[in-house]
Simulated assay, not measured.
Amino acid sequence: MTGNLAHLTLAFGILGNIVSFMVFLAPIPTFYKVYKKKSTEGFQSAPYVVGLFSAMLWIYYAFLKTNVLLLITINSVGCFIETFYICFFLFYAPKKARMESLKLIVLLIVVGFGLIIVLTQFLASGVTRGVIVGWICLVFSLCVFVAPLGVLRQVIKTKSVEYMPILLSVALTLSAVMWFFYGLLLGDFNIAIPNVLGFTFGIIQIILYFKYKNKKPIANEKISEFEAKKYPVSEMQEKKIPEIIDHKTIDVVKLSALMCCDVLPVVARLDENGHDAGHVAIEPQAHPGVPNHIIEVAA
């Protein structure tokens, strides 16, 4: 029975390593965009600094425990990957963002993690040290798992799942399940308890995704309602312009302003004796900045 339990624990630990490794690789598309644009734009370094701090904290805890080698392996990989992300970010970040990132790194990694090691090494010993670090890991993990509440609130408010990718939500949920059972089978509740919250929030994210994935975002609905109030149905149909090159929408007001200048001027035509010979319309020159095929004259 003990042998089966050990094998089951090993299986969940290996699966947890695999899924967590996939989660660590999730930001690669983001950094590929940064590489292509040679700028971090609005991206923040905080998630990667927090990820590095968490991985370092769990490694420290694992060294104070026994039989948690798989906790060391995945978090060692996590430290390497998160460090790479941070260095990549700092290389392409503008000066202001780079300075803010360096301040966060010093505050969290150097000061925060340094104080935890110094205080636990000098003020605690033996089993007590492991218990204290375990509680720190537990509380910090709970805070990390609570962080997605802001995203869930945004999804419910806007009815848009644009910033909540389903694959990442599924991966985080599976990771929480694997590490929960790993901690439960080891009898280590510092590992198991935070993942209960992670699993719960993961399921909520998946439910919200399938609920709102086909919903029209509220922001777009408000714009549509505003246009409907501003223009009657018949007027909207008259002002409607078909999509032309690359499905780009042409502003009705600007196009109408251009059209006002395209009325064909009519001048009198005289014969060789000076008598009126009728009228002729002079075709105007097209605007140099507007293609001829998008100019329409209403009859």
Rank of each mutant, 00 (worst) to 15 (best):
E100V: 12
T66Q: 12
F88Y: 11
L90D: 07
T83D: 01
P47K: 07
G78Q: 10
I136Q: 06
F63A: 08
E41A: 07
G112D: 13
T83A: 12
F84W: 15
G130R: 03
N67K: 03
F89V: 12
P47V: 07
Y61F: 15
V118S: 12
I81D: 06
G51Y: 12
L71R: 12
L102F: 11
F88P: 13
N67D: 14
Q121T: 03
A124C: 15
G42P: 09
L102Y: 14
I109Y: 06
V49M: 10
V77C: 03
T66R: 15
K103F: 15
I105K: 03
L90P: 00
F122V: 14
E41S: 01
V127T: 09
K103I: 14
I109Q: 06
V50P: 02
L123R: 08
V118I: 14
A46V: 13
A62C: 05
S76Q: 11
G112T: 05
G114N: 04
I132D: 09
P47F: 02
L64A: 02
W58Q: 10
C87M: 07
T128P: 07
M99W: 10
A55G: 03
R98W: 10
K95V: 09
A97C: 01
I59Y: 04
F43Y: 15
G114C: 05
V133E: 08
I72V: 13
L102E: 13
G42C: 05
I116F: 04
F84M: 13
G112Y: 07
M56T: 06
L71F: 01
E100D: 13
W135T: 08
I116N: 04
G78S: 11
V49T: 04
E100F: 10
V131A: 00
V127W: 09
L119T: 09
Y60H: 02
G130Q: 01
L102I: 11
L69S: 10
C87V: 14
K95R: 05
L123S: 10
F43S: 09
F122W: 10
